[in-house]
């Protein structure tokens, strides 16, 4: 068994708001094997994007990373100096942003936006070598070399997102964090861009953390899924386990709400949502945050917050329903 490339331990991120402190990420732990694809799923406000930003230490005030560890290839990123962290970004850990529409500098050419990243990580090749390297990068993400001299407003949404992928792989990182990389694109282009991204990730041997809210799309892409609810991971497992035998009632409802192939054909059952509303992080219920919406809540749910524990070989959940089975805590990793 090889060593995980990325390990996150008990990560906590909070925001200071006028109405009080809000913990957007509350004790998240998981790990990632080399070249593994891991999906982080949850409703908006569940803390998945905050987790992604925290990995790169890009949380802005009034947000702050309170505690935790992020180990990338032996380094604890949270204890690095600002300058050391800067060197890690792009070179070892890169990001594909959520809003490709406005993610590129509107007044700089694609060429310059790629070169800037290379130069600040010690690439001092002469101009023509760099140009060749950029042409190659663009080719790998499926773009013409002429795109290099274009400005962002001259590109379509899909092209822009391909450029951000080119930037993300430009230094050959160990881990790529992709925050809903295709949510702004239409469905056909979504799949094409996703295929490009996965092809490149496999080619590079990089690991991928994919953030998303669409369980169906996620299941087609990643091998393991972590489900987030109100800042906490409530279940981690392989795609197969999560889809076929989900443990946490929230995951069960999420999976049930997916339109199945059968229902698509017969239209007998409308996909239904999860009753109740997402709780406000300012005013979380005591005990399990999902209890007010949970159809299977038991007494201790309203007093004790269930920890994330291993229930089956490859499957972890934070739920009191599995209290009697033998449990094991630690960091959920691929077996």
């Amino acid at each position: 068994m090889s060593e995980p490339v990325l390990t996150i331990k008990d990560l906590r991120v909070s925001y200071q708001t006028p109405k009080g402190k809000v913990r957007a990420v509350d004790g998240v732990s998981f790990s990632l094997m080399p070249s593994e694809r891991f999906g982080l799923v949850g409703e908006s406000g569940s803390g998945k994007t905050t987790t992604a930003l925290a990995l790169l230490r890009l949380i802005k005030p009034p947000g702050v990373i309170e505690s935790g560890e992020v180990h990338l290839a032996g380094k604890n990123l949270l204890s690095l100096s600002e300058e050391q962290m800067r060197r890690v970004r792009l070179a070892e850990l890169s990001m594909i942003p959520q809003g490709a529409m406005n993610s590129l500098n509107p007044v700089a050419t694609v060429n310059n936006q790629i070169i800037d990243g290379l130069r600040d990580h010690g690439v001092n090749s002469p101009k023509h070598v760099l140009n060749e390297r950029i042409a190659d990068l663009l080719k790998r993400v499926g773009l013409e070399p002429s795109v290099a001299d274009m400005y962002p407003h001259e590109l379509s949404g899909g092209m822009k997102q391909r450029v951000t992928i080119a930037i993300a792989i430009s230094m050959g990182p160990k881990v790529i964090v992709a925050d809903e990389p295709t949510s702004a694109l239409d469905v056909v282009i979504q799949m094409q861009v996703m295929e490009t991204l996965i092809g490149l990730q496999e080619e590079l041997g990089a690991s991928l953390v994919m953030i998303g809210h669409d369980m169906g799309l996620m299941a087609q892409v990643v091998s393991r899924i972590g489900v987030m609810y109100a800042g906490k991971l409530v279940e981690v497992g392989t795609v197969r386990d999560i889809l076929l035998s989900p443990l946490h009632p929230y995951t069960q409802l999420l999976v049930e709400s997916l339109p199945s192939m059968e229902s698509k054909l017969t239209r007998t059952r409308r996909p239904r949502g999860i009753p109740g509303i997402t709780p406000s992080l300012l005013d979380l219920p005591a005990g399990c945050a999902f209890r007010p919406r949970c159809p299977k809540a038991i007494e201790q749910c309203s007093t004790i917050t269930p920890p994330l524990e291993k229930v089956r070989a490859d499957q972890w959940t934070a739920c009191h329903l599995y209290g009697e089975t033998e449990k094991q805590d630690g960091i959920p990793a691929k077996a």
Binding site: L56, G99, N102, P106, A108, D116
Partner: peptide
């Protein structure tokens, strides 16, 4: 607050480049 500032920072750019050119 623009998205491109976040992406630029995730590129690990040096502070002065981020400040001036982005």
């Amino acid at each position: 607050g623009e998205d491109y500032m976040l992406l630029a920072e995730s590129k690990g750019l040096k502070g002065w480049r981020l400040f001036i050119w982005y």
